[in-house]
């Protein structure tokens, strides 16, 4: 498929043509995979970055000018998502501590048990998330864990932006109650 065809498909998508949009996204996904692989993203993470790029393409499809070539437009968005992925990974690494064999043991000094506390907190959060109603859980997962924008999360979940805001607010109240319930006396 040449670039003109993609331009036409995206222009039709801007007018709300769902089949043209599906075809465009399906064909563009292969192109994005190749671009993202070239940025040095690890093999097992490429598909995540492809999905984030597709969500961005959806959110900013109004910025595409059909008189301009479509590949540089797609490439710039994909590279940006790859940079963001790397930034998130570096930021996560700065807060992570690698566990060695002795890492799971507990020590008399409370400061020495921070790693264990972190692991327990993560397990508790996973448990509480599982207890949330599906709508609230989806809102937290999209907005807080995958860090999508409200517009992107609305596109993925099919919920309105307002409904997502309400669901997130309610989820936070529920999580707070669950935390109080399980808090050690």
């Amino acid at each position: 498929m040449d670039s003109d065809d993609w331009s036409n498909l995206l222009a039709l998508a801007q007018a709300g043509d769902a089949p043209a949009y599906r075809r465009f996204l399906s064909e563009a996904a292969g192109f994005l995979r190749a671009i993202i692989a070239r940025t040095g993203i690890p093999q097992d993470q490429i598909e995540d970055v492809v999905q984030e790029t597709l969500i961005s393409v959806h959110a900013i499809r109004h910025t595409y000018d059909p008189t301009r070539p479509v590949r540089p437009w797609l490439t710039a968005i994909a590279r940006r998502r790859a940079i963001d992925w790397r930034r998130r990974r570096n930021s996560a690494r700065a807060h992570e501590v690698a566990l060695d064999d002795a890492g799971h043991e507990t020590f008399a000094d409370p400061d020495a048990n921070r790693d264990k506390d972190k692991a327990e907190a993560a397990a508790a959060i996973r448990r509480w998330l599982a207890e949330l109603p599906p709508g609230q859980r989806q809102a937290v997962e999209l907005l807080k864990l995958r860090e999508l924008s409200l517009n992107e999360a609305a596109a993925v979940s099919g919920q309105s932006v307002g409904a997502l805001k309400v669901a997130t607010h309610r989820a936070m109240i529920t999580l707070r109650k669950l935390w109080k319930r399980d808090e050690p006396a």
Binding site: A13, G16, D17, A18, Y21, L25, Q51, L54, A154, V156
Partner: peptide, 20 residues
């Protein structure tokens, strides 16, 4: 598969947009 599902969800959610 996840990407295919996402493409399905995005294309179902598509609405006309005003070009910048």
């Amino acid at each position: 598969d996840g990407t295919e599902k996402l493409i399905g969800a995005l294309s179902e959610a598509v609405v006309p947009v005003e070009r910048l």
